[in-house]
Design a binder for these strands. Structure first.
Lengths: 340, 340
DNA sequence: GGCTGGCACTCGGTCCGTGCGAGTGCCAGC
DNA sequence: GCTGGCACTCGCACGGACCGAGTGCCAGCC
């Protein structure tokens, strides 16, 4: 009924005002700034109900209301329209990302761009290895029994590992090894790599079997396993600006960001079918992220999600704007990576 | 004379007390905590002289004294003994760095270690490309006219670039190109690489000349040039702890750290013959670093400095301890890289 | 000549009481 | 079901008083 409808308008107005002013918002200010068509007294009644339902709260008696996590959630789910980016912003994205020389550079630019657009901490995950495919494997001999294995994926990611081999190798062995590995793995998804190892070892010439086994093992163990995924983080300076929004100190949050594992878990849920994921405050289920929200989305080429990217900021953030920015940046990055 | 000598003792005591308590230190407290053998009144006279000479200052009348940048400088140069690391700390360093799987991992561990030992922001520079030598060059064909050039240095650093070629290539061309590049550059210092290009182009088979020229150009331009050096930064969370030591906000400092260029300049002065370099406050000649000190040193294998590492913290820091930690970590990293 | 104890003085920090204003809940009336 | 009015509650800013740490200076002592 129209009754409930207006109450939602009130909640929306509270979120909007609070996000832009950072002051608890009172009934009078609300009536003045928004055309709700009713008097402050009526709004007060609505606010009392909203508070009882847990959508807003009072920092202390005789202060205005502030949205709770639950309030933000409702706002994000039902009350906000996606805010389209301005032409200038789209232009900025293109200009910023063009001219990147390699993957590292692309992701570095992306993270800076995202931080700049949203004024929050930005996080970008390297394309997940397990979803990438092998483009080339290079083997460089370091010493008689030591190899450097270099993996180049179809997303342009380059990873290296030192492999300690059980036997000494001649130069020809290394060349043979390289050929064997490439014919076995080239084009394969890394997730499938493990399955190809037995075959590979079986068909390898006897004198190379131990070698092939050792190298394949390293490849599968240290490169395919998840948890080896990397992050780029930027815009930490933005935390200084929003420091007041975090209870107590910035420290736990900064620590969580350095920990990477925590953030990785949040960012890497990418199978959302292209929908932007928003996690508000307590929903993050991590102590350090109290008062923090995460806005993330997967980026990829075509229908394949390669990794996640997003932002971390105070729950008091501009959700529509940030969601739009995250989505737009993910799209551009996906396109860019599809080209290479 | 004994007179001046005692005044220096007073300065040392002031620095030590102020660093550990964060309170401006007064004459009475000084007399109590240190065996200077004279009364507070005498110390007051000494302090008046020290203040006149610019080594200490009063935040306001009726507060104790605080060291100035100049005071810290004198302390570092003449009043502090290197504090040897404890056995536990040495052990921790070894344990922490062992088991690293690649260069990225080594530097990541290093930066965390350094941050943990000093409780400051730690910065580690990747081995400078211009001082590294080529171990191997790999060329992977992406499309008919597009190559991925992968450079592997003797320090284990791996860099990649996409090269847009003026002509389409056959598979054999790529193999030839790879062989040519490696025979020309393998073992060469990257700093010398530029000089070898003309020869290489001249001796290349005619149909590959344009190709060799394009690839070499990319190699020299984007990989050898300085400014392409990378940094790993960690321990930013420690800034939250020392936030009060910085005038105003942490923001400029966080921005400078993200800027990288600023910090790179500070860290990369590595030709100090193994001596730890300390830059105090204003000496850094950068606005964002007001109130901040940088302690850095070069690390390397044998006599060759590969890059720099160090810490950034408030001028009010434990210089002897931090200098010892920075030096010790640099040594271990140097050793570790020499092994591979 | 240099050190010391004593003393007056300064001044920032803390505590407390007051006044103000924003905001609320409730109620009677429309 | 909405509205205007009203009493009430608190947090906060302001200002004065007090306290104590620390100083500079001076006269006296070794």
């Amino acid at each position: 009924m129209a009754h409930d409808e207006r109450r939602l308008q009130v909640l929306r107005a509270i979120v909007q005002d609070y996000v832009s002013t950072n002051d608890p918002v009172g009934s009078k200010a609300l009536a003045e700034r928004h055309d709700l068509g009713v008097s402050p007294a009526t709004i007060r009644n609505d606010m009392a109900v909203l508070e009882e339902q847990g959508y807003i709260t009072q920092p202390h008696t005789s202060a205005g209301r502030v949205p709770t996590d639950k309030g933000y959630r409702l706002f994000v789910d039902r009350l906000s329209a996606v805010k389209p980016l301005s032409a200038a912003e789209r232009k900025a994205i293109e200009r910023f990302l063009d001219g990147a020389v390699d993957l590292h550079d692309v992701l570095g630019r992306t993270v800076r761009l995202l931080a700049q657009l949203t004024h929050q901490v930005a996080v970008v995950q390297y394309p997940t290895l397990s979803r990438s495919a092998v483009r080339h494997l290079e083997v460089v001999q370091l010493t008689a029994s030591r190899l450097l294995l270099v993996l180049i994926t179809d997303t342009g990611r380059v990873e290296q590992r030192v492999v300690e081999c059980p036997v000494d190798m001649a130069q020809d062995d290394v060349a043979d090894l390289r050929a064997l590995l490439n014919s076995a793995f080239a084009g394969a998804r890394l997730a499938d790599a493990g399955g190809r190892v037995p075959d590979l070892v079986d068909t390898a010439p006897p004198h190379l079997r131990a070698l092939v086994a050792a190298v394949s093992a390293t490849l599968v163990e240290t490169l395919v396993e998840p948890g080896e995924d990397r992050l780029v983080i930027g815009g930490t300076a933005n935390l200084a600006r929003t420091a007041l929004d975090f209870p107590g100190s910035l420290r736990p949050l900064l620590e969580a960001l350095e920990e990477q594992v925590v953030v990785l878990k949040l960012i890497s849920e990418v199978d959302t079918g292209g929908a932007v994921l928003v996690r508000i405050g307590e929903e993050n289920a991590h102590e350090a992220l109290t008062g923090a929200s995460v806005v993330s989305v997967g980026y990829g080429t075509g229908d394949r999600a390669l990794g996640g990217l997003g932002i971390v900021g105070p729950t008091r953030m501009d959700y529509p704007g940030n969601m739009a920015a995250v989505r737009a940046v993910a799209r551009y990055v996906g396109q860019l990576l599809a080209e290479s």
